[in-house]
Write a protein that binds this DNA or RNA. Structure first.
Lengths: 189, 189
DNA sequence: TCCATCATGTAAACAGTTACATGATTGC
DNA sequence: GCAATCATGTAACTGTTTACATGATGGA
């Protein structure tokens, strides 16, 4: 029984690893706590803000030599100030442009769409309600995002600019939901 | 040290569990293998088509009484024909409309957007290339999806209709990428 | 003085992936 | 006869989450 998983140093970074590396590169020098807060505040809460995920990832990045820590005295345990190394920046530069590969550019996973696939399980009246609820909830999020996006954004603040991506995505979803709604209503008569 | 995770029967279904339940409900009676093929063929390959994920999930669903299996003789191990129980259909009916809750209606996780957030790590010329590559790759996927969506779709085939959601999403992404591209180019001069 | 926030971690549980393993059936 | 597909699973691993645990700092 031969297991030959490639050693970690040869494997591609996971999205979480790359993301943490990116935050350290962009915001560093900073503490692990700050990274955690940053990820939690992200408009897409893909990852939990738990310590249990960030610290192991940072340990891995340090073992790979992509992130370096310098100790500062603080309290009993001290604190570590993190920064991306030159190798870390290079690794990030290699990771970012990988868009053609695999399924990076395909449709994303959308819980609404997944639920919609099984809409036949609901009676017709509740199908319409589903679409109405989804549209309302999406519109609420959209309004909130538009509020954030209307601020003045520096042209190199790519994270802030990325809010526009979410806006366009949700606008697309609303168009789709509207179409589906009209489809259901048309058939009702 | 008290660990009190709620017992499985009280916990909400994960999206994968609900999805497998949904496929069994919709396509059943069918084998586990057919469910696996179905998930693999899904336009959003969120989950791998591996046996190692499907069989444990089906075991859990059976333990919960949401899916029932009847054995058929086939080869040495036999085969199991699966179908959703009444409780399974009820559970699915409860799961589908949960759209207001939590982050179901927020922006999805988009690897492109995540990469974009760290675009500052690239020199300006490569930033433009990133956007061009992402747009080309997205357009390719979009053309393929539009091909599928142009077929005649029965009005209650919600899975087929859900392709339109992916189309709208990718159209939204293209609009965003175009805007970002113009933004970069404008500043270049 | 007390509370929110800053700060660092660990242990257990769990979900999901990868790789391995086996065999039957069907069509060329 | 052989390859593709149908069919069912297991074992090891790994990444992530949940919950627990501790303590410092600074402001009300």
């Amino acid at each position: 029984m031969k297991r030959r998983l490639p050693p970690r140093s040869e494997r591609a970074l996971t999205d979480l690893e790359a993301c943490v590396l990116g935050v350290v590169w962009r915001d560093g020098p900073c503490t692990a706590y700050a990274v955690r807060r940053e990820l939690a505040a992200s408009s897409t809460p893909r990852w939990s803000d738990s310590a249990g995920s960030i610290y192991p990832v940072l340990d891995r990045l340090m073992a790979l030599g992509l992130v370096a820590a310098t100790a500062r005295s603080w309290g009993e345990r001290g604190k570590k100030v993190l920064a991306a190394t030159a190798a870390g920046a290079a690794r990030l530069r290699a990771w970012v442009p990988q868009v053609a590969a695999a399924d990076v550019c395909g449709p994303t996973y959308d819980p609404i769409r997944t639920r919609f696939c099984f809409l036949a399980v609901l009676p017709p009246a509740r199908r319409r309600r589903f679409l109405a609820d989804a549209a309302r909830s999406t519109r609420e999020t959209l309004d909130r995002l538009r509020g954030n996006a209307s601020r003045r954004i520096r042209p190199d603040d790519f994270e802030a600019l990325s809010i526009h991506a979410s806006v366009c995505e949700l606008e697309g979803r609303l168009r789709w939901l509207g179409r589906m709604r009209r489809g259901l209503t048309a058939r009702r008569t």
